[in-house]
């Protein structure tokens, strides 16, 4: 079985601090990590590798420093790594990103593609399903459990108040939730080998059979109208009650607002 996991290198938002004066994010010097949903997807693939001897390739699109995210994936146990990097890919929205990734994927062999649900720096949850559309393969999103049965993937798909069990024939694409598993830690040995013994394959614009109109900033139909920091509206109400009275008080307020 051949599995390709798409990952994105993102700033570690748990390390982001707020400027106490302006209330804006201080991004300088924030370390980069593999997006948590993507890392869960990678772990799911590595567990399938442990069980079925699957071959796991990890793919990312990003600047040259995204090499580090791929080394991390190799250190965790991925078999191969591909970095799509070119200035021409810069400024891509979800359409251009998924088009570019799909173009690279169409030249590769795969039974299963796993992406994260969404990236913590964008939160769109669009790239995974769009890749599936481009490739014309089935897609199951929001996987909180995943197993293989014969030639099919069986996924428990998370909803707010329930789950669906869905089955798709391979080749197909699954988007993973970080709740899917606890990703393994790298070992020092894995880290040495990832740097010493492994290579990251680099693909550039010239390696892809894709129109200029579908890549980078030019190929991105999304236009940002306005971006703003949400203002805090007024102070909250502080009441001091014991637990039982507090619960009653909250229920009354919710009823007043017709939430309950």
């Amino acid at each position: 079985m051949k599995i390709i996991v798409c990952v994105k290198q993102v700033p570690d938002t748990t390390e982001v601090r707020l400027d106490p004066v302006t209330g804006t994010l201080l991004r300088e010097g924030i370390p980069s990590i593999i997006n948590p949903d993507d890392k869960a997807g990678l772990e799911a693939a590595l567990r399938l590798k442990d069980r079925y001897e699957a071959h796991v390739t990890v793919l990312t699109m990003g600047p040259p420093q995204a090499d580090l995210a791929l080394r991390e994936a190799l250190a965790m146990g991925a078999d191969a790594a591909i970095l799509l990097t070119d200035r021409a890919f810069g400024g891509a929205d979800t359409w251009a990103t998924s088009s570019t990734l799909a173009s690279a994927l169409s030249a590769l062999e795969y039974d299963l593609i796993i992406t994260g649900r969404q990236a913590i720096d964008g939160d769109t949850a669009q790239v995974g399903p769009q890749i599936a559309e481009h490739l014309g393969i089935p897609n199951i999103s929001y996987a909180e459990d995943l197993r293989i049965e014969g030639n099919t993937v069986v996924v428990r798909r998370q909803y707010e108040d329930r789950s669906h069990i869905l089955r798709a024939e391979m080749p197909c694409l699954v988007t993973a939730l970080s709740e899917l598993n606890e990703p393994r830690y790298m070992t020092p040995r894995g880290i040495f080998e990832a740097f010493r013994d492994r290579t990251v394959k680099i693909l550039t614009r010239a390696d892809l059979a894709i129109d200029d109109g579908n890549i980078g900033l030019k190929g991105s139909p999304t236009r940002v109208m306005k971006s703003f920091t949400k203002a805090v509206r007024g102070k909250g109400t502080v009441v001091e009650l014991d637990a039982r009275d507090a619960a009653g008080w909250i229920i009354e307020r919710l009823q007043e607002k017709f939430v309950l």
Partner: peptide, 18 residues
């Protein structure tokens, strides 16, 4: 020879994570 700055960084990062 295999302990360049990047390797060292990744080792320290993972030790810190753990």
């Amino acid at each position: 020879a295999e302990f360049n700055a990047k390797t060292v960084d990744l080792i320290i990062s993972e030790a810190r994570n753990l």
